[in-house]
Design a binder for these strands. Structure first.
Lengths: 214, 214
DNA sequence: CCAGTTTGACTGACTGTTCAATCTAACGAG
DNA sequence: CTCGTTAGATTGAACAGTCAGTCAAACTGG
């Protein structure tokens, strides 16, 4: 295995092109069914070049998983920074997890399942995921603390809330992703928001923000 | 592909032997890394025989996934039938999802990730999973209604509670399975029980039931 | 002309699946 | 009871396709 090409400014574009292609493919066909040749074709490159960049199929796919995970959270943070009201920010977080994909670099749900499956065994991925989840909870904690400072949210242990709320969101999004007939994205949204309102003592909403259909 | 051997009383044992072997292997190595030869070896049979029974690798693995899913719920129902107090039954449900495996046919967590990943694409698996999840929620609903009848649980929409609670349990168990440092099985147990107590108006516990360490 | 890219062609290993050949246990006829 | 018949169970060996990874040659921009 030739060691992978070093990271230079020029490579970066190609590398990312491949990561995106790989992420898309994984989402469509699944981790185990994603072939180097397919990734290469979608990234308009040769199989050999993909290997030249990543050295091995596993590293390519794993990196792709981590890449889109990271993108998902980056985008979430950015989005969160653009509003201020506690309720709006909570609402964004919930929509972010419960609503089917449309972003160009999909944090698309198919990826999460494979990410979890990989993390369950691959220690490197496991660590990465733990870090990312910490980041996710930190975002929740920030929202809560800001809301408390503004007087919209009552006094409580923000960290503990974050752990529970994050778990609830994960669970809801699984059902949504798997198209459970009892739990579409709109209902998931309402459940999550209802929980947050209760727990945080949020002022009642003017109006429910409806979730887009997939 | 020779069509698979029909189900006869004699086959059944072998078939199950293979399903269990496959489930174990999937749990250890993952769906994509599970080879027919390995399953055959563990089931003390030849590769050819495995194909003789299941016709194709995919069907073997998918059936194995569904088999252990079913076993998981069967065992849960049985266990649930053996206690009566609402609190005890809730506690069992929570332990059942949050505590690392030890059962002979593991509903072990590695399997769930692969099951979800498969369900996300394979319609047959998706339907199956939806059914199973309905069963799971029905168990929760039963517990709640029984508790209400006994006067331990306050009046509320049992169905709505079940959906939310099931989602919370799923989310918690992901973190536990992935060994999140902030959320071991004991803490997950406490979070889930705390939520149930609050939501259902359960009488306060005598003592917390501690969760086993993995 | 040089370092980093890119590729087509190749291969070597892996592995799902087929197949023809045995084995086994039940069973019915003699 | 015995022994051919038979249908299902079981296997070792071979086949065939796939695909990750190698390599030497060609390309490209600076």
């Amino acid at each position: 295995m030739a060691d992978m090409a070093p990271a230079t400014p020029n490579n970066e574009a190609r590398r990312i092109q491949m990561l995106r292609a790989a992420a898309e493919l994984i989402c469509e066909r699944g981790f185990g069914e994603t072939r180097i040749a397919d990734v290469a074709k979608r990234a308009k490159a040769s199989s050999a070049l993909v290997i030249y960049y990543f050295g091995t199929r596993e590293r390519l796919l794993v990196d792709a998983l981590r890449y889109s995970e990271q993108n998902f959270y980056d985008a979430a943070e950015k989005m969160l920074a653009e509003v201020t009201s506690a309720r709006e920010r909570l609402s964004l977080l919930v929509q972010w997890t419960c609503i089917p994909d449309d972003t160009d670099v999909p944090g698309s749900w198919g990826l999460w399942f494979d990410l979890w499956a990989q993390a369950f065994r691959h220690p490197e991925v496991k660590q990465d995921r733990v870090d990312m989840d910490g980041r996710w909870r930190a975002m929740i904690v920030d929202v809560v603390k800001a809301g408390q400072a503004a007087g919209d949210i009552r006094k409580l242990d923000a960290r503990a809330f974050a752990v529970t709320f994050a778990a609830l969101l994960d669970g809801l999004s699984i059902q949504v992703a798997l198209r459970d007939p009892e739990l579409d994205s709109e209902r998931a949204y309402n459940i999550a928001m209802h929980f947050a309102e209760r727990e945080l003592g949020l002022p009642a909403p003017r109006r429910r923000k409806p979730a887009k259909k997939a």
